[in-house]
């Protein structure tokens, strides 16, 4: 028998993810009426689906340990952090400062996630894309977003 290695085991962790999601679903669904098999309540589907996910998860955990397929080691952490953060900032800035700052931050922040990030080029890109999207969406299509808000 080969050594059980689960630290970077693809299927093992897929299984763990499914078990967590499935179990969470079953637990949350306990707040909803289950009903009967013929007159299903709102809790019926989430409970059944959650249980199915747990079963799939357990199977994959076992199968994964047997197969031992490895997760690709390139983790691109920079992108994983910067891209969602830029999006969240875009959402916040859209509510409080308007379209121009939101779009500038989003484009510049996203560009910074690249492996060959060039600040000046990214700044020009940010300006260009901000103008371009403002023309298309706000001016052309007429979306009701202020370009800049005052406090």
């Amino acid at each position: 028998m080969q050594k059980l290695e689960f630290r970077d085991n693809k299927d093992f962790w897929s299984g763990v993810m499914l078990v967590i999601v499935g179990a969470a679903s079953v637990i949350v669904a306990r707040n909803y009426a289950f009903g009967t098999s013929l007159r299903m309540g709102p809790g019926y589907f989430p409970t059944v689906l959650g249980s199915v996910l747990v079963l799939f998860g357990l199977y994959l955990m076992v199968a994964g340990l047997r197969r031992g397929e490895k997760i690709d080691p390139d983790w691109s952490l920079r992108g994983l952090i910067l891209l969602p953060t830029s999006l969240v900032l875009f959402g916040i800035l859209m509510s409080y400062t308007g379209f121009i700052p939101a779009m500038m931050v989003l484009v510049f922040g996203s560009a910074a996630a690249g492996t060959d990030f060039r600040p000046v080029e990214a700044l020009i890109l940010a300006i260009g894309l901000t103008v371009f999207t403002a023309v298309i969406f706000i001016w052309g299509i007429g979306l009701p977003y202020p370009l800049l808000m005052n406090w």
Partner: peptide, 16 residues
């Protein structure tokens, strides 16, 4: 016309 549009939109948000 782009500049005009930008100015017009900014004017929309000028202080009351």
């Amino acid at each position: 016309s782009l500049l005009l549009a930008a100015v017009a939109l900014m004017a929309l948000t000028a202080p009351g």
